[in-house]
Structures are given as structure tokens and as C-alpha cells.
């Protein structure tokens, strides 16, 4: 990956502690300049994104990685709310899901997900996917400027 002095903030919304750890490790090994924040349910995700207690000081993430199966507010509800909120609308959302159901893929795109990635198994596969996410979103694509 091309060295880039900018530090990117990624919000990972993931309730599976094992998957969250694999993704954290993959970001570390990828060498990307990423500050990873992790919340484990949809309610905390929305509180974080709206900068509500206890996340008043949070910055707007450059990228959201969203598991569809998180509890309380489901991933799809988090996505819907983000796309209805003017401040959060431009933030790219990468769906990470173990679902193989084509209707989940279509629904996610229909509700404004930027892309849908099937969750892999094992650190090597997570690393390969995280590398590609970093290369594409932080190396090739232009991201919207942070507004806060």
C-alpha cells in the first residue's frame, strides 16, 4: 500500500469479539494508518455516530465496517439511520456479513451500503480482505472530507 501520512478512523460495528479481534489484528498487520474504534451493538453504534453519551468526543469515522447481525439495533437499522441523517449520509459503509443470502446483499445495496463483503474465516483471509479494503478506500477512492 502506498504510504500515506493521513490517519484514517474506521468504526467497526461487530458483536463477535473473535471477529473484532481478527479485524483489529488484520488492520495492524496491513500497515495501514488506521485508528480502529469498535462498538458491539447497533445502539452503541448510533450513539457513537451521533456523538451521544458516552461518545461525545468521537470524531466522524472515515469508513464504517458494519456487521449485519449485531444485536439491539440490527445492522440494517444502523445503515438505514445513517442514510437518513444528512451528516452521516456520505460516510462509506462496508457491510461485513456471514450471510450468504442474496436478498441480504440486495437489501444492503438498496438501503445505501457502499459495498458488501462476505466475512471470511481465519486471520489470513481477514488480512487479505482488510488489505484490499485499505488499498481501495484509502489508496484509490476519494473519501468525503470530515465535517467534524
Amino acid at each position: 500500500m502506498t504510504p500515506n501520512p493521513k490517519r484514517y478512523e474506521v468504526l467497526l460495528i461487530e458483536d463477535d469479539a473473535g471477529d473484532a479481534e481478527l479485524i483489529r489484528e488484520a488492520w495492524t498487520q496491513s500497515g495501514a494508518s488506521v485508528e480502529l474504534r469498535v462498538v458491539d451493538d447497533g445502539r452503541k453504534a448510533l450513539a457513537y455516530l451521533h456523538r451521544e453519551s458516552p461518545y461525545e468526543g468521537s470524531g466522524r469515522p472515515d469508513l464504517v465496517m458494519l456487521d449485519l447481525a449485531v444485536p439491539i439495533n440490527k445492522g440494517i437499522d444502523v445503515l438505514k439511520e445513517m442514510r437518513q441523517d444528512a451528516a452521516l449520509q456520505p460516510v462509506p459503509v462496508v457491510i461485513m456479513s456471514s450471510s450468504n443470502d442474496p436478498s441480504d446483499v440486495r437489501q444492503s445495496y438498496g438501503l445505501g451500503a457502499n459495498c458488501f463483503i462476505a466475512k471470511p474465516v481465519g486471520l489470513d483471509s481477514f488480512l487479505r480482505i482488510v488489505l484490499r479494503i485499505g488499498e481501495f478506500w484509502f489508496g484509490i477512492a476519494r473519501l468525503p472530507a470530515r465535517e467534524w
Binding site: 444528512a86 456520505p90 460516510v91 445495496y109 459495498c115 477512492a141 468525503p144 472530507a145
Partner: peptide, 20 residues
């Protein structure tokens, strides 16, 4: 276009990504 406004508007309108 490299304009920030085009980037933000495109994502707001539902672009899946923005490439120059």
C-alpha cells in the same frame, strides 16, 4: 473533478465510491 463538493454530493446521492 477533484472538488470536495463533488465528492460529498456524489456520496450523498448514493455513489458507491468516487474515483478520479
Amino acid at each position: 473533478s477533484d472538488a470536495e463538493s463533488d465528492v460529498a454530493t456524489s456520496y450523498r446521492l448514493g455513489a458507491n465510491c468516487y474515483l478520479t
